[in-house]
Every structure is written in C-alpha cells, then in structure tokens.
Write a protein that binds this DNA or RNA. Sequence first.
DNA 1: TTGAAAGCGCTACCAG
DNA 2: CTGGTAGCGCTTTCAA
Lengths: 332, 332
Amino acid sequence: MSLEEVARKSGVSTATVSRVLNGVDSVKSSTKSRVMKAVSELKYHPNLHARSLAGGRSRTIGVIVSNLDNPFFLDVYRAVEEDCHSHGYEVLLANTAYRSEQLTASIRLMMGRRVAGLAAIVSEMEDSIVDELTESRLPMVFYDVGTAGGNITKIRVNYRRGVERIVEYLAALGHKQLAFIGHHAVLGPIDERRRALFDTVQVVCPDATIRVAADADSLEGGRQAVREILSGGPAPTAIICVNDLMAVGALKELRERGLRVPQDISVTGFDNFRLSEFCYPALTTVHIPRDRIGHTVFTSLATDSKDTNTLGKEFVIEPELVVRDSTGAARG
Amino acid sequence: MSLEEVARKSGVSTATVSRVLNGVDSVKSSTKSRVMKAVSELKYHPNLHARSLAGGRSRTIGVIVSNLDNPFFLDVYRAVEEDCHSHGYEVLLANTAYRSEQLTASIRLMMGRRVAGLAAIVSEMEDSIVDELTESRLPMVFYDVGTAGGNITKIRVNYRRGVERIVEYLAALGHKQLAFIGHHAVLGPIDERRRALFDTVQVVCPDATIRVAADADSLEGGRQAVREILSGGPAPTAIICVNDLMAVGALKELRERGLRVPQDISVTGFDNFRLSEFCYPALTTVHIPRDRIGHTVFTSLATDSKDTNTLGKEFVIEPELVVRDSTGAARG
DNA sequence: TTGAAAGCGCTACCAG
DNA sequence: CTGGTAGCGCTTTCAA
C-alpha cells in the first residue's frame, strides 16, 4: 500500500498526500482531513526507505558500542536516545561485543543507512579504520581514539587522572600490594589505562607491587580474574578494577572465599554506574558522566543544533573519585 | 556516490555492479574483480534505503521492549540479535520506557521501515493496538498479550506457576506476613501477576497477610518500595518482588536499615537475571529463560526458517524456582 | 555474461 | 492551494 492508493482513495494527488503527511501547512483543512481519513482507513504507513531515498537528508544517528552487557554503554546510548527523541531524531544501535569484524560490519551498516552522524563508543579501534572514517565526510564522534577536527568530535576520558585519584587514595590508606583487573581489550599492548596505572604507581608509591589479570568484560569475568589473582601468589591488599562491572564480579568471588571487603581487601571500580551504589559493599569508584557523553554525541551529530553544534571539538572528561564502602586501610 | 559511479569507473553497467555486490555468480571473475576494485577505491557504500525499496523484502527484525534499564529485556534482545546476525538478519531496537505513546511511535517506525517481523516484548499493551496488529499481515511475536494464530506468535510466561512456587516455598518456611513489590505497569487493575499472587496466597496459606507497594521498575524503585512498606506498619517477614531488578534495590534498602536478609526478612526476585547470583545475598528467584524467548522470536519472524518456522504458535514458559541465599525461615 | 530500462514509494520543484 | 513529474539509488526482468 502506497501514497498513490491513499491519493486515489481521497481523490487528490500524491503530492498533496505527501504534504499532509509532512505537515506542510499550505493544504486546505478540508482536504487535509479527507486525506487523514483515507490514511487511517487504509492503515497506511509511509515507507521510510522511500522517504529517505527521495528526501536525501536523514534524521537518524548511529551509535556503536563495545559491550551492551556493560551498563556503562547502555547509559550512554540512553542519553543519546533521549536527546534524539526530544528533537525528532532516531537512533540506530549496534553492538560489537569487542569483535573488530563486527565493528566493520556495523560501520558499513550505518553508512549504508545514511545516518546523519555516527558515534563510535568503542575504545578499541584499529588506526586504519579511524583514518578511513576521518577522511569520510560523515560527522562522527570518537571515544578515546582518533583526533578532533573537521568532521570528528573526540571525547576523551582522562583515565590517567582517574587512576591517579585511585592510587593516591589507596596509597594514603597504606596499600602496597596492588592488583589490577582488566578485560582483554584493555590489556592490549597499546593500552593507556594499564600504562597510566603503572606510571602512577611508580610515582606515588614506588615501593608497591602490582599484579595484573585479565578476563572478559562481565560479572563472571571479574570473578574469574580474582581467582586468577588469588591463585597466583600472596593476596594483594587492594584490587583496582578497570570498571564497575568487573568490580562487582570481583566482590562476589571475594565474598565466597570469605575475604571481607574492605577489612581484608579493598576493591575499586571505574564508571560509577548505578549498580555501584546498590552492590555490597557499595563500591568506591570514579565517576564518568555517561549523560554528558551522550549529550555531547547529540550536539555534535545533530545537524540542526546549528549555533550549539560542537562537531570537530575535543571534550575531555575529568573523573571524580567517589568513596564508598569497598575500600579501607590496608590490613596489617 | 552511487552504483552508477562505480559502474562508470569500472566500465560496466549498474546491473553488473549490482550483481557483483549481491554475489550473483553469473559474473566473469575478471569483471568481478574490476568492480570490486572500483568499489574499494571509491569507498562505496550501497544505499540500503534504495536497496530495500527496490528489493522489496527485508531482512530486518524489529524488537520493542518496555524497559532497557532492566537487564531482562536486554537479554532477550541480545538473544534475538545473536540469532539474527548468524543468519544474516539485522535487528532494530526500540524502547518504550513503559510509555504507551512511545509504543505507538515505535510500532509506526518499525512498520515504516518495513521490518520482516516485529516482536513486542512489552507486557502492557492496549487491546486496540493488539487488535490492529493482529489484523495486519505483519509477522509478530507478542509477549503475554494477545492470542496466537495467523501471523501472531504468543509467548506467555506462566507467572501463576512461578508465583505458586515462591509462595509455597515461603509458606513452608513459615512466613505469614508477606509484602509484594511491583512496578506501576504491573499493578494496573488488570494485572495477572498481582492477582495470581493473591489467589495463591489464599489457597496456600489463607492465614497470611499481604501488603503491596509499587514504584518504578528500577533499582531505586525497589528501594523506594521497601521504604513504603516499612513505613506503613509492622515489617513483613518476606518480600516478594516482581522482578530481580527491584529485588536488588530492595536488598540495598534493607541492608541500610540494618535488617539482615534472610535472618530478619526474606526477599525473592523473578527472572533470574545474571546479577541475581552476584548480589548480596544471592537472590532466591524464579528462572525465566530469556534466550529461549529470543530464539522463539527469531524462529517465528525469520521468513527463511521455513521448516522450523513457528509463527502462529503459542509458547508457554514454565518458570523454575532457584533457591539461593536471600530466603530463610521466618523469624520468631 | 552483460546491458537497457522499468519500476520500488516518496519528495520537491515547477506550473497552474 | 493543488497537480504533474523528475528523480533518489538500487534490483530485476527481458533481450542481446
């Protein structure tokens, strides 16, 4: 069923039906209501593909994330979604599950759908892809990769700062045996977070030891990483987790082993996702404002936020330490 | 940039380029590679809107859920996504946040995009919408609403059974003062879960009292509902939560008030989402297999799963009680 | 194995 | 205020 049928049924041209459907005001109200009647009787739904094809411009924004299972990414998406909907945009979501093939496929899909802009909230991205995207004219937001300018907005979290806050805080509590739990994407050779941690420890408490374990970015992964740490030598006095999700998994494993947090061992997270306040013990973490990330994505990619458009700029997010109950003085 | 440019650059017709891009084998391999070369040099991305318009059929499935913040829905989506991707389908996601206007908008959007099938994992849906969708020819999956047959697959969770398991279990533990925590969508006048609970209590332990509180379907909502319960009279010995998410929120509030779970008060959830094993105490709940729901969605809506197609059938999901640490004998 | 051309359903421009 | 119509970029016969 098409515009034409509606036009026929209401005795007008397709052009007029189109005008009615698009709210162009230059239509006599009697005509308009006749058309509307036909539309609802026919249960007509305009073909959005045809519309985009004919119309050219698009009012949809694409969002690609690494791991939907981690509420961090979901929060970012929700923030984008909220802004989009309140401004008449649609959002298309894609999840890579940290698989680079899937990233490529998702980018293809988004470009094929001719999104108005694309946000890649995907920390691990090969340089070649970054370059290719940078060269394209597509408005984009990168997260922690690439460089701002032209059609590229860059959002960067100052991890180093966040890590410093955590290490300084733990050092002040007397912790000298540390462990770091990351997921695989964050323990690659070129990883900033891991390096930031080592550098900071070097400076803040050079006499501290630090061990590393990696697993999947999930609750189970956090748990598993703790097993790895605990089976590999003397228990550390504090475990620094790359994010809250893994931290919650870590808490579970410690609890099961009868290790009390924070009396026996301290745990820190990263992100300050909502659950971090509800888990036990409530997590000491570092706050990353997902809503601000989402808003920045929107203002950068929505073409009609003319004066407020932020495309091409770089945004640095400064983390703040949030102290709760999962950290305490080092034992002994 | 279009097919035509690729055609020109590689010295063939658009028809041939189209054939190459769609993997039609009747193309000489020398031609094929010439085309491929042009494609990659031009960084050509086919316009998917044009493709759908011209092609007719669609290989995308729409999924509408009530509340993305609740991992239950996300798990269902992920399961659908997995099946879809491994069979060359795309998934389009929409979130209603329990708002019926948003449901309408999402349905419109999906129909406009000409999805091959649509899953509405949205327990609250007005009859008029259910009817309209049932009349349409669109393959659909309903969750807990509507009736199976024709183009409608229905997935129904046997809540009554789940509630019975919980109540029987709590009754056996000696609980007589119960409370029920739900979210607003589930405490409407026509709600099955609430009624199932009252009926069951009536039968299983007629001498038990039961109070009810409602709040948002979120961690915070669960917490708030407990406040409501606890400020409204003597504390119950067991709190039955409509789902795990609210249960985790409830645990937090109880913990903060110094009430021990399960010694002072028992708590049950519903869904058995991943976190229920990782929270403290680990949640006694009822398992609802989200992956099975997701698979059923796929086999019903994917048009090419010919022989295995399940469209039009009804699937009843039988919940299973999962006992963990959040429940124990009634105090006193 | 390839090309020409007729749409797919809609928007937007030009007339009237 | 309304109609006619030329595309938008692609797929798909039908011929060659």
